[in-house]
């Protein structure tokens, strides 16, 4: 269970170097993360520190919906890579659905992911993004990824078939 009140954003780490090299867009977003082992979280928590350049509506102000979606998509990707130790090629996004529940204000955003289904070829990931309260998400999303086993390694596909 994630207790957002206990999240220590200042303890967050940049994504592992190998992922930053493979996914240059991560550095543009400025994403960081708290590993799963920290504070007994069951999954890594991803953090998008507030930056003025990510704002959409300057009057509210609120983060751009695209920045929130991008943060959530890339959280799902990192979650999958971390679970699989980055051994295979990057999972390929098939589709992405996002529901915006409330506007994301000018403060840090958090995201956590759950693999809802790990099939032989497709992975379904559920993603939650929140700010002050875990129970009051700014957005909920789900994404299907095509899971491409490393070339020649068809055993992986067999292993993860349900």
């Amino acid at each position: 269970m994630i207790e957002p009140g206990h999240l220590k954003a200042e303890a967050a780490l940049p994504p592992p170097e190998q992922f930053c090299r493979r996914i240059p867009h991560l550095q543009h977003l400025g994403m960081r993360y708290l590993p799963a082992c920290v504070e007994n979280h069951s999954a890594p928590v991803f953090i998008l520190g507030f930056q003025d350049r990510l704002v959409g509506n300057t009057h509210l102000p609120a983060l751009h919906g695209g920045a929130v979606a991008s943060f959530m998509e890339n959280s799902a990707l990192l979650h999958l890579l971390m679970e699989q130790n980055g051994t295979s090629r990057l999972p390929k996004l098939i589709d992405f659905n996002i529901d915006y529940l409330r506007s994301a204000g000018p403060r840090d955003s958090f995201a956590c992911c759950e693999v809802a289904k790990l099939g032989s070829r497709v992975v379904l990931v559920h993603i939650r993004c929140w700010q002050r309260h875990f129970d009051r998400p700014a957005a909920l999303a789900r994404a299907h990824y095509l899971w491409e086993p490393v070339s020649g390694n068809t055993e992986l596909a067999e292993d993860i078939r349900p």
């Binding site: 867009h25 751009h64 695209g66 920045a67 991008s70 998509e73 992405f96 996002i98």
Partner: peptide, 12 residues
């Protein structure tokens, strides 16, 4: 290209 950038373009 990162799909997140595509999503941002689409939302806009």
């Amino acid at each position: 290209i990162n799909t997140g950038a595509i999503t941002t373009l689409i939302d806009s």
